[in-house]
């Protein structure tokens, strides 16, 4: 073994940079049983200006952590329970069977909920979206992908509604990485989602024309290219793709090409990606 030659210093640069713009409200990011995107979700929120605690579902159940201490609840991506009994279903059961009352109270307050990928699957199984008339029924499903297996690739999204989540967003360009993201609901539900402008993001081509179900722009076969919807009251967003995994310019699939073009056009190369706007919108809501 070799002795470390340099003395480590414990400073997290990103935190130092952003603390002055931090809002006092805090987020709770759920973890446990195979959820796996909590760290990058925490990072992206810090950069947007919101501190958070990563809380194991069991600590919420036993009361070590309490929902009323938070204003934003995030179910991040992952493979809770290995997708057994349907993606997100077992974790949703765990939540519903143990902390349902606290959760509905949280939903009644002026709070936001965000579910990404596995988080969206959990929201769907909990009925937190679409939650028509605050009934929390399971009205939508995220079925296995049309291709029959997990697929990881970058997709382009465009906002399909004008709401707190989509402000100042022209497009999102970020990865999907799921085996069950094939959005499905009844025709009546779909009509109502459309009528009430709850469809928030849709898969589209790179030039923002609709994907019209075509692979790979629509990577999973989702009906009407739906990538994300909100609850009826707009405060809960479920989204299949992962903007938090592409928070920086260098995370984008085609960044080397973009950089080369920008360099030759004399344009400054950004450090952040446009996907950050989604998280800034969340923080702005509380500001």
């Amino acid at each position: 073994m070799v002795v470390a030659r340099r003395t480590p210093q414990r400073t997290a640069s990103s935190k130092v940079m952003t603390t002055r713009n931090m809002i006092p409200e805090k987020a709770i990011i759920m973890s446990g049983f195979g959820i796996n995107s909590e760290m990058e979700t925490q990072e992206v929120l810090v950069r947007a200006g919101m501190a958070s605690d990563i809380v194991h579902i069991n600590d919420l159940i036993t009361g070590r952590n309490r929902l009323p201490d938070y204003r934003l609840l995030v179910f991040p991506g992952g493979f809770s329970y290995g997708d057994d009994t349907g993606a997100g279903n077992a974790y949703a059961n765990r939540v519903r069977n143990n902390v349902w009352e606290d959760l509905t109270e949280f939903l009644d307050g002026d709070n936001l909920v965000l579910g990404i990928c596995n988080g969206f699957q959990i929201l769907a199984n909990l009925g937190l979206v679409p939650a028509f008339d605050k009934q929390y029924n399971r009205d939508i499903a995220l079925m296995p992908n049309r291709g029959g297996r997990l697929e990881c690739r970058f997709v382009t999204l465009k906002p399909a509604a004008d709401n707190l989540w989509t402000r100042n967003i022209e497009r999102i360009y970020c990865p999907v990485a799921h085996g069950e993201g094939n959005f499905y609901c009844s025709r009546e539900t779909l009509q109502r989602l459309k009528r009430q402008k709850m469809i928030t993001f849709t898969y589209c081509r790179e030039d923002l024309r609709p994907a019209e179900g075509e692979y790979p722009s629509n990577p999973n076969g989702s009906v009407d290219d739906i990538a994300g919807i909100t609850s009826e009251d707009g405060k809960v967003l479920g989204l299949m793709p992962h903007p938090e995994r592409a928070m920086e310019f260098v995370n984008l699939y085609d960044w080397p090409l973009r950089k080369e073009r920008m360099k030759r056009e004399g344009v400054a190369v950004p450090t952040e990606s446009l996907n950050m706007q989604l998280f800034r919108n969340v923080v702005e809501y509380f500001r």
């Binding site: 990072e43 990881c152 995370n251």
Partner: peptide, 18 residues
């Protein structure tokens, strides 16, 4: 593409390019 190569948010140069 059936292997998630973007989780943990560190994707810079991935398995397929261009």
């Amino acid at each position: 593409i059936q292997y998630d190569h973007t989780v943990q948010g560190g994707h810079v140069l991935g398995p397929v390019q261009g």
